[in-house]
Structures are given as C-alpha cells and as structure tokens.
C-alpha cells in the first residue's frame, strides 16, 4: 500500500509496501513539480503483482485517487 507522501502537492518521498515487505522510494524530481523514475523503479512497474501495491484500485493511501477517465488517454 502506498503509505505516505505528498506534501504540499510535491512528491518528496514515496514509501511503498509490497506485500508488506518491500519498501523503497519511488521517485522524486529535482524540482518540485516533476517526477523522474530511476532504474531501480522500473522493476516495480514491470511486475504485475506490484502494481496493486503501487496504485491500489481502491485508492486507499492516495490523497488524490483519480478514478476519472475524462482526461486519461
């Protein structure tokens, strides 16, 4: 579950718990409005079982859990 992490709209640190064992910083951009994934984060994206932990469909743990598809491509 996504456990914490946006402060004032800025992604400063994202602690991830996957099956209660894996915790890592996801990403943060050097500026306050950006995100940049490093090599260590790619493994999280390619593991389907990890995705539920990254972005829980329930939205639990997300301050802004956008379920709205209007802007999504």
């Amino acid at each position: 579950m996504l456990s914490a992490v946006r402060t004032g709209g800025v992604v400063r640190r994202m602690a991830l718990g996957m099956r209660g064992t894996l915790k890592t910083a996801l990403a943060s951009g050097p500026d306050q409005e950006s995100i940049s994934l490093g090599a260590g984060h790619v493994g999280l994206l390619v593991r389907p079982e990890a995705m539920g932990g990254l972005w829980p469909r329930s939205g639990i743990g997300l301050r802004h859990a956008p379920q709205d598809r209007r802007n999504s491509w």
């Binding site: 409005e33 995100i35 995705m51 972005w55 829980p56 469909r57 956008p66 379920q67 598809r69 999504s72």
Partner: peptide, 11 residues
C-alpha cells in the same frame, strides 16, 4: 505526474 499515480493509467 498524475499519470504516474493514477489507478486508471497504471495498466
């Protein structure tokens, strides 16, 4: 950045 955190976009 919202694209990276959206449950809609993750698949």
């Amino acid at each position: 950045t919202g694209l990276f955190f959206s449950p809609v976009a993750w698949p």
